[in-house]
C-alpha cells in the first residue's frame, strides 16, 4: 500500500485538530486516535481504538511523523498492537521534546521578536512576515512529517538527529539573540527610558529564579497600577 495524496491530505487536515479535545487524563489521545483512524482506514477503527487508546501527548506539529509511521505499521500488518504501542510511547516523548525546543522555545519567539520590531517600525509587514515564515516551517513539518513517517516507518525517530531539527534550531537561536539586541531600536532617546535597565534586571531575576509565570504577570500588572496611580 502507498500513501496517496488524498490520504496524506486527510491525515494532514485531521492533524490540525490534534489538540481540540486536550484533557488532563488523556491529553491528545482522542485527537491522535482520530488522526490514526483517518490514516489507517475506517476498517481498522475498532482495532485501533481498542488497542491504542490511553494517554498520548507530543508536540502538535510533530504528531505527523508519529501518525505517518503508525499508519505504515498498520498498512504493513507486520507489527503487533503491543509493538506499535511501544513505538508510540518512545516516539511521543522524543518528538515532544524536539518540537518544544524547536518551535515553542526557539522558532516562534524569535519570529515574534522579528514581527514586533518590524511591526513597530513598518506596520503590517511585521505580522505578515511572522505568519508567512512561521507557517512555512510549521506546515513543512506537518506535511513532510506524514510523508517521512510513512516512508521510514519506525526509523523516523532518527530524523531528530538531522539538520531539519538541529541546524534550524541553532540558526534561530542566533537570530533570536540578534533580535534581542535589536529590540533597543524600539527605545527612544529620552531620560525616562533609562528605567528599562532596572526593570529588565528585575524581570530577569524573576525569570532566572523560575518564579511562576502568573506571578511575573501579576508583578507587571502591579507595576502598571502603581505607575498609573503615581
Amino acid at each position: 500500500m502507498r500513501l496517496s495524496t488524498g490520504r496524506l491530505l486527510r491525515i494532514f487536515f485531521q492533524s490540525l485538530f490534534i489538540q481540540t479535545s486536550w484533557s488532563f487524563p488523556s491529553m491528545q489521545s482522542m485527537g491522535f486516535l482520530s488522526d490514526l483512524v483517518v490514516g489507517a482506514g475506517d476498517a481498522k477503527r475498532a482495532e485501533i481504538v481498542k488497542t491504542q487508546k490511553g494517554l498520548f501527548n507530543t508536540h502538535p506539529y510533530m504528531v505527523s511523523y508519529i501518525v505517518g509511521a503508525a499508519v505504515r505499521a498498520y498498512d504493513d500488518g507486520s507489527a503487533s498492537p503491543v509493538e506499535i504501542k511501544r513505538f508510540l510511547t518512545v516516539a511521543q516523548t522524543s518528538f515532544a521534546s524536539a518540537g518544544d525546543l524547536l518551535f515553542w522555545r526557539t522558532l516562534r519567539p524569535a519570529l515574534l521578536l522579528l514581527a514586533v520590531i518590524l511591526g513597530v517600525h513598518f506596520g503590517v509587514v511585521g505580522p505578515i512576515t511572522f505568519l508567512v515564515i512561521y507557517n512555512i516551517f510549521h506546515l513543512f513539518h506537518r506535511i513532510k512529517g506524514i510523508h517521512d513517517g510513512y516512508k521510514l516507518g519506525w526509523d523516523v525517530i532518527y530524523l531528530l538527529k538531522t539538520r531539519r531539527f538541529k541546524m534550524v534550531r541553532q540558526v534561530f537561536e542566533t537570530v533570536g539573540a540578534l533580535l534581542s539586541g535589536l529590540l533597543v531600536s524600539l527605545v527612544a532617546i529620552d531620560v525616562h527610558y533609562l528605567l528599562v535597565i532596572p526593570l529588565t534586571a528585575l524581570f530577569m531575576i524573576m525569570l532566572v529564579r523560575r518564579y511562576s509565570a502568573v506571578l511575573i504577570i501579576i508583578s507587571v500588572l502591579l507595576l502598571i497600577l502603581i505607575i498609573g496611580m503615581v
Binding site: E173, G176, S180, L183, L186, F203, M204
Partner: peptide, 24 residues
C-alpha cells in the same frame, strides 16, 4: 518602557548564552 523591559528579559532568558552573546 514596562513592556520593552519585559521583552528584553524574556528574550535574554530565551536566547542569550555564551555562544550567542556576540550576536546580542
Amino acid at each position: 518602557i514596562i513592556c520593552i523591559s519585559m521583552g528584553f528579559a524574556n528574550s535574554f532568558y530565551l536566547f542569550v548564552k555564551k555562544t550567542t552573546a556576540i550576536f546580542l
